[in-house]
Design a protein around this nucleic acid. Structure first.
Lengths: 221, 221
DNA sequence: CTTTGTGAATATTTTCACAGCT
DNA sequence: AGCTGTGAAAATATTCACAAAG
């Protein structure tokens, strides 16, 4: 019957981000037009996106920022905490561990893993670094759902397999390696190259006619 | 007349990634079916994507991997080198500087910037770290087109403004900050939270009926 | 016999435009 | 007067299905 388009879910997290900024600026009410403007989405689309899940606005007024945030968080599932296993305690792993946004959205790094004996036992941001050998065991025991791979590319598939073995069902791959996962596990690749490549196309040289892109102002990805 | 869908461009960079892996496995010819399988795209769509730019295949045979790679690189513009300004020499910046994939695809970090006097003058991967004050000047002189922001979020907008001042037209924002850019500048946000948020929705609890996602095997983003 | 390239059909997404609520 | 929620229209994207090529 009603299948919710993937684009809707993607935009919902964009709206959430914008709404939180509005909230921080003490804006209490917002119109679809203003929200659309700051997220780069047509106002009618903003309104339709919400109607997939209910009717959250007040005609003639707009949406209550606080309430809308709560609705979106409940829809996405970020109203309750989620545990993350971070694999790789190098520069990238350390950067991710220090990333403030995670905690704000209910994501909680429950364990950090590395294969380097020099790093095992040390702490990063009050979290002990465990041996990667213990990954499946610890991950399963702690009920961790999300894995972030921040290791050298050659080890990426092996790490993914261990995460899956540990019961993880969402994997963020920060490696350029192409990873295979079984159905039921969600894989997201965050490859800077991939992102740069497709922006290149829109760089003037290729843009024979400089066709108007919809990627104009604030948000993307 | 013929406007090329944005999705096509996005998939093209996915194909390129897969094709390079195939090439590394010494596979010389590939069918749309096999390429589609490894990139999670319907074979007919793979074929149609290519026809926007020409006819690259041989009927009854498939596509020559080497040739197809060259075609896609030319289409995207990654057949010629592109210069990057990396702003932020902390953990994240260092990780990006060491990222091997960039060079492989013709991306070349031309300069690194930081505001910390402790870091200015030091080198990362044979590249001197310059003061952020010199950013617009150096960027413009070197003809740098791409900027990567890997600084603390509060400084993100300021850095973006300086990059734009320096003539950059593509910005990769590794910060959770929402950045404003003028039309003509392409902004890509790479926020791990954003990516995690929308995968959450598909985690079983919310998936009332466990509807079949198309995100199944290898590729995504 | 295999696999491309593509018209036509289908499906999905986005946008318009306006009735109806506050 | 202002803005939502939504049918209907328009625009896009995807997939089917098959003729043509090697």
């Amino acid at each position: 019957m009603n299948d919710i388009p993937e684009g809707v879910i993607e935009r919902l997290s964009t709206y959430l981000n914008c709404l939180i900024k509005f909230q921080q600026s003490n804006i209490e009410t917002i119109s679809s037009e203003r929200l659309g403007l700051s997220s780069g989405v047509n106002p009618a689309e903003v309104r339709r996106d919400f109607t997939y899940f209910g009717t959250f606005g007040k005609k003639g007024v707009g949406y209550d920022v606080e309430t809308l945030i709560q609705h979106i968080q409940r829809i996405l599932g970020s109203d309750e905490p989620h545990k993350i296993a971070l694999v790789g305690a190098g520069n990238l792993g350390s950067a991710i561990a220090s990333y403030e946004g995670l905690l704000q959205h209910g994501f909680h790094i429950a364990a950090i893993f590395d294969s380097d004996p020099q790093k095992i036992g040390k702490t990063i941001r009050h979290l002990e670094v465990f041996s990667i050998a213990d990954l499946p065991h610890i991950t399963r025991n702690a009920g961790i759902e999300i894995g972030i791979i921040a290791v050298p590319p050659f080890a990426a598939q092996e790490v993914a397999d261990m995460l899956i073995d540990g019961g993880v069902s969402v994997i963020l791959n920060y490696t350029p390696a192409l990873i295979n996962v079984p159905a039921g596990v969600q894989l997201h690749n965050t490859d800077p190259v991939q992102q740069l490549l497709h922006t290149l196309y829109y760089l003037s040289a290729n843009d024979k006619k400089l066709a108007g892109r919809k990627r104009s102002s604030i948000a993307s990805d």
